[in-house]
Amino acid sequence: MTQDSNPVSPEGTAEILIAEGPVLLRMTAGIAHLTLNRPASANGMSVELLKAFHEAVMACHGRPDLRVLVLRGTGANFCGGGDIHDFASRGDGLPDYLREATAYLQIVSAALIRLEAPVIAGVQGYAAGGGGIGLVCASDFVIATRSAKFLTGATRVGMAPDGGSSVTLQRLVGFRRAMDMVLRNPVIPAQDALAMGLISSVVADDELDEAVSALAAELAAGAPKGLAAAKRLLWTGMGLGVEACLPEEARTVAELARTRDAREGLAAVIERRKPRFTGR
Rank of each mutant, 00 (worst) to 15 (best):
E264W: 08
N6D: 14
C79V: 07
E207D: 08
T168W: 01
L135M: 15
L198P: 05
D65T: 03
P7C: 06
G81W: 03
A229S: 09
P189K: 06
R90N: 03
R263V: 10
D209H: 12
A211H: 06
G125Y: 13
L240R: 00
V167G: 03
D192W: 01
P10N: 10
G265E: 05
P10M: 01
V23N: 15
M1P: 15
A144L: 03
L49P: 06
V187R: 03
R38D: 09
G158T: 10
R232C: 01
I143P: 13
L256S: 01
A138D: 08
T259A: 09
A148P: 02
L17G: 14
G237K: 04
A110V: 07
G91P: 03
V47F: 09
R272Y: 10
R63D: 15
H33A: 11
S201F: 02
S5I: 13
V8F: 14
A217V: 10
P118L: 05
E218M: 09
S200T: 15
D205L: 04
T28V: 15
E116V: 02
S109E: 10
S46W: 04
D209L: 02
C245Q: 12
H61D: 07
V23R: 08
H33N: 13
D92C: 03
L208W: 12
E264V: 14
S147L: 02
V136F: 04
V203A: 08
G163I: 07
I84V: 13
G163E: 00
V253H: 05
G82H: 01
S165Q: 14
S147F: 08
L25S: 11
M238C: 11
D261V: 09
G73F: 10
L246E: 12
P10S: 09
R26F: 08
V142Y: 11
Q124F: 00
E11R: 13
A32M: 12
G153H: 12
V269E: 14
L36E: 08
M196W: 01
Q3S: 04
W235T: 02
L194T: 01
E255T: 04
A52M: 08
A32L: 11
F150Y: 15
L198I: 13
L234K: 02
G125N: 12
R280H: 04
I143R: 13
R114A: 15
G131F: 04
Q106I: 02
D65L: 02
D140L: 06
T168F: 01
T152M: 10
Y97K: 11
L183M: 06
P189I: 09
V182N: 06
L198F: 00
P118M: 07
G163R: 00
T13L: 14
R99M: 08
V212Y: 08
V108P: 12
R251S: 13
A178M: 01
F87A: 15
I120D: 14
L34D: 11
R171L: 08
G75L: 02
V57F: 04
G222N: 03
A111K: 14
N77L: 11
G30L: 04
I113C: 02
G153L: 10
